[in-house]
């Protein structure tokens, strides 16, 4: 009867169970995401509708969140700009140049960086890295002070936006380099040999075969790193000396905070509408992270035809 009246294809029970489980997992993810979104919107709503003078700062929600958003993006962009080239270089060294035994050890060490809790990074940043950076910042101010980024005056403690970005860069380094390493390692031998047989040097082979093949993977890894940098809380809360609003000055003591660090620092002493305001800032972070991921996906997809994924 099934063969005549039903248009459904024959399916083994195992297949049906597996398909159902996989579908369930997919739906669960969507439900969790929807739940978080609903929570954020509902809890942020009072702050969205409250009169401007009730919001901390007294100038309304937008001017409360704007510097935080700016600080979040600035720290994350600095981290990404520093970490991505380094991570790609490490991944290339491990997969293309290093002798096998050294490569394994080095990869292991880089992966270990990911296992360090972020609060440890925070302590390391504030007690070790920040003071060590002060002379370098002085030098930047003296020699490159004409660039607004390094206008100074140099922070005496070194707890600057640039230090925060550096700490974040080290934190996101392992995730980017691990992904870059995997995609570089998977470069098909066919493509590597095609380049070598044309008379390419090792570096030319990397440029012709390895980097193009891995580029979408590297972008994906960088976006994962960016996601972590945007959401990083404790390290920033410890390292960054917060006072002041939007500025591109990376080496002074007057820095905007970041959304996540601000929530962590303010939440214990907040109540009422202040909590709603913090959650509204969290909603903004949520939307930004979402947009970043969509953007990354679009970049990767646009090159999909040339990516070699299909061949």
């Amino acid at each position: 009867m099934t063969s005549t009246s039903s248009s459904r294809p024959v399916l083994r029970r195992g297949d049906r169970v597996f398909a159902g489980t996989a579908k369930g997992a997919g739906i669960l993810i969507m439900l969790i995401l929807a739940g978080v979104t609903v929570f954020l919107v509902v809890e942020a709503a009072p702050a969205l509708t409250a009169p401007a003078e009730d919001i901390p700062g007294g100038d309304g929600l937008a001017s409360y969140i704007a510097p935080l958003l700016f600080g979040t993006l600035l720290a994350a962009v600095i981290a990404l700009a520093l970490a991505t080239p380094l991570a790609v270089a490490i991944a290339l060294f491990i997969t293309q140049y290093a002798p096998r035994r050294l490569a394994q050890g080095l990869g292991y060490v880089v992966d270990l960086l990911a296992a360090i809790p972020s609060i440890v990074y925070g302590f390391w940043g504030v007690f070790w890295l920040a003071p060590k950076m002060v002379p370098f910042y002085r030098w930047l101010e003296d020699n490159l002070g004409f660039i607004p980024l390094f206008a100074g005056p140099t922070s005496a403690t070194g707890r600057t936006m640039l230090t925060a970005g550096l700490v974040l860069a080290i934190m996101i380094l392992p995730i980017i380099s691990a992904i870059a390493r995997e995609v570089f390692r998977q470069t098909p031998t066919l493509h590597r040999e095609a380049a070598l047989a044309l008379g390419a040097t090792r570096w030319e082979m990397i440029r012709m075969a390895v980097l193009p093949y891995g580029s979408s993977g590297v972008i994906g890894g960088a976006m994962l790193g960016l996601g972590r940098a945007l959401g990083e809380t404790m390290a920033i809360a410890l390292v960054l000396s917060v006072s002041g609003g939007i500025t591109f000055n990376l080496i002074s003591s007057g820095n905007p905070s970041t959304i996540a660090a601000n929530v962590a620092l303010q939440f214990p002493e907040s109540s009422g509408i202040d909590v709603n305001t913090l959650i509204a800032s969290g909603l903004v972070l949520f939307v930004i992270t979402f947009a970043v991921n969509m953007g990354a996906r679009a970049i990767v997809n646009r090159r999909a035809e040339f990516s070699g994924a299909g061949s």
């Binding site: 098909p188 066919l190 493509h191 040999e193 095609a194 380049a195 070598l196 047989a197 044309l198 008379g199 012709m208 075969a209 193009p212 093949y213 580029s215 090159r303 040339f306 990516s307 070699g308 299909g310 061949s311």
Partner: peptide, 27 residues
Amino acid sequence: VRRQIGMVFQRPNPFPTMSIYDNVAAG
């Protein structure tokens, strides 16, 4: 040596990230 002695492999291996033109121009 490899610039003087060209090679064609068993499985066609054009560079997937390059156009037809760029593949020929690669060498």
